[in-house]
Simulated scan of single mutants.
Amino acid sequence: MTGVPASAGGAGGKPVPGGKLGAAAVNQASLWNIANILTMIRLLLVPGFVMLMLADGGYDPAWRSLAWAAFAIAMITDLFDGHLARTYNLVTDFGKIADPIADKAIMGAALICLSYLGDLPWWVTGVILGRELGITLLRFIVIRYGVIPASRGGKLKTLAQGIAVGMYVLALTGPLATLRFWVMAIAVVLTVGTGLDYVRQAVVLRRQGLAKERAEALEGS
């Protein structure tokens, strides 16, 4: 994810010329770096994925397989652009905005298509998308007090969602259809559970921030 903050040092943790550290590397990062290009590819894959998903009525196994390939590429590029951005300090303003949009766009498109085709209940799509949008909004609300870090549970949630949605996109039948149901059930549980944990963290962060502001106000009076 290109929007992930870089480390304090330059590439490899070494200072950059002029004595400035990671901030200089961030400022010098080109828009056309590999991490941003992968994010752009992911954004371009969204309309292509939707067309493949809905081609020929949305139930042709061949088209669904191609749609799965597009979805899988999008998920893989999400992993790589984040790794590249963190390793080589390829953080740009474009990446900070485009990366989370690309993440939610491909997942949202897949969920909405699946529900539209009747493969996935709308309430599942509503829970997952509602959680993602709600937590994103919550992060912005409390950002003045600090940043809510990504948790291990959140990463597991993302992995479970990707696997579950990918299995539904493939339109599996038989025992595999039963398996995908349980994988999606795990993804929904993780989605709700981690969402509630983020809310808890936001409440604690806000309380600590307000307490700090009151203490500073008293000291200054």
Score class of each variant (00 low, 15 high):
84 L>I: 09
84 L>P: 01
84 L>A: 08
84 L>Q: 07
84 L>D: 03
85 A>M: 08
85 A>C: 03
86 R>G: 12
86 R>F: 04
86 R>L: 06
86 R>K: 14
86 R>T: 08
86 R>Q: 12
87 T>A: 15
87 T>D: 06
87 T>S: 14
87 T>L: 12
87 T>M: 07
87 T>C: 07
88 Y>W: 13
88 Y>K: 10
88 Y>Q: 10
89 N>P: 05
89 N>T: 04
89 N>Q: 12
89 N>C: 10
89 N>G: 08
89 N>H: 13
90 L>N: 01
90 L>T: 06
91 V>E: 07
91 V>A: 05
91 V>Y: 00
92 T>E: 10
92 T>C: 10
92 T>R: 05
93 D>A: 15
93 D>F: 03
93 D>L: 15
93 D>P: 14
93 D>C: 08
94 F>D: 08
94 F>R: 12
95 G>D: 06
95 G>C: 05
95 G>W: 03
96 K>A: 15
96 K>P: 06
96 K>R: 15
97 I>A: 11
97 I>K: 14
97 I>N: 11
97 I>F: 13
97 I>E: 13
98 A>R: 04
98 A>H: 13
99 D>K: 08
99 D>F: 13
99 D>C: 03
100 P>V: 01
100 P>T: 09
100 P>W: 11
100 P>Q: 13
100 P>D: 14
100 P>L: 13
100 P>S: 05
101 I>D: 04
102 A>P: 02
102 A>V: 00
102 A>W: 04
102 A>S: 07
103 D>T: 03
103 D>F: 01
104 K>Y: 00
104 K>L: 02
104 K>M: 07
105 A>R: 01
105 A>F: 04
105 A>M: 15
105 A>E: 05
106 I>R: 05
106 I>T: 11
106 I>C: 10
106 I>V: 14
107 M>R: 03
107 M>W: 00
108 G>V: 10
108 G>F: 05
109 A>L: 08
109 A>R: 07
109 A>E: 09
109 A>N: 01
111 L>H: 02
111 L>D: 14
111 L>R: 14
111 L>E: 09
111 L>V: 10
112 I>T: 11
112 I>P: 06
112 I>K: 01
112 I>Q: 03
112 I>N: 05
113 C>M: 12
113 C>T: 06
113 C>S: 15
114 L>Q: 15
114 L>S: 11
114 L>I: 02
114 L>Y: 05
115 S>V: 00
115 S>L: 07
115 S>Q: 11
115 S>F: 00
